[in-house]
């Protein structure tokens, strides 16, 4: 960058939304289509299918409900991260972000327990269409949870560095939006795959 531009910021046309937020929303828009396409396929095949109540019975509603509560709670804690950021409360920011990460990991652990229970019963993705969708959808979702945990953890690391809070803490809003989206996906997956 040359001297002329570095000293004076370039004048730009006013924009309704900050760039990062606009970017994350565009990203979420395409994510809506990913999960939308998958869920539409599932719902349609389910409507014509023979009915999968037998397969459904293998899923533990209790574990699924616990996971639902975990994700809802983590959505709440990450909103608290954002309000701590707005207040400039560095300590709260870090502790709530820590809780969010732990809750995300807990979600994955419970998911793993469920998976191993299925595997020990001999239920693999090739045991019929329901299990194909079950593992496909929850697997895809779990990958998103994992990505969210990585994003949250790396934000926590950079914010904890000296001077990091001032520079990076505004990113909490983007992490939050993504995390809430993952939560919303689960809100629909849970009734479809456990209760339906």
């Amino acid at each position: 960058m040359n001297a002329g531009s570095a000293s004076t910021p370039d004048a730009v046309e006013p924009s309704p939304v900050p760039a990062a937020k606009l970017g994350i929303w565009w990203f979420l828009a395409s994510e809506v289509m990913v999960f939308g396409g998958a869920l539409v396929s599932f719902i349609l095949l389910r409507l014509v299918g023979p009915g999968w109540s037998e397969d459904l019975a293998h899923n533990s509603v209790a574990l699924g409900s616990i996971n639902t509560l975990i994700l809802i709670t983590s959505s709440f804690t990450i909103v608290e991260v954002l309000s701590a950021q707005k207040r400039g409360d560095e300590k709260k920011f870090r502790s709530f972000m820590g809780i969010t990460i732990v809750l995300g990991l807990l979600f994955l652990v419970i998911k793993g327990v469920e998976y191993s229970a299925h595997f020990s019963e001999g239920l693999f993705p090739d045991k019929g269409l329901f299990w194909a969708f079950y593992f496909g959808l929850t697997g895809l979702h779990a990958l998103h949870v994992l990505a969210g945990i990585v994003a949250n953890a790396s934000l926590l690391v950079v914010v904890s560095r000296p001077g990091g809070f001032a520079r990076y803490s505004h990113r909490a809003e983007m992490n939050g939006l993504y995390w809430h989206f993952v939560d919303v996906v689960w809100i629909f997956l849970f009734p479809l795959l456990y209760l339906g």
């Binding site: 999960f35 396409g37 090739d126 299990w131 969708f133 496909g136």
Partner: peptide, 20 residues
């Protein structure tokens, strides 16, 4: 988006024996 979902399903079909 829907194609990404479809591609995931297709990979599962090929490698894990699912039948989407």
């Amino acid at each position: 988006g829907p194609l990404i979902a479809g591609a995931v399903f297709l990979l599962l079909d090929r490698n894990l024996g699912t039948s989407f």
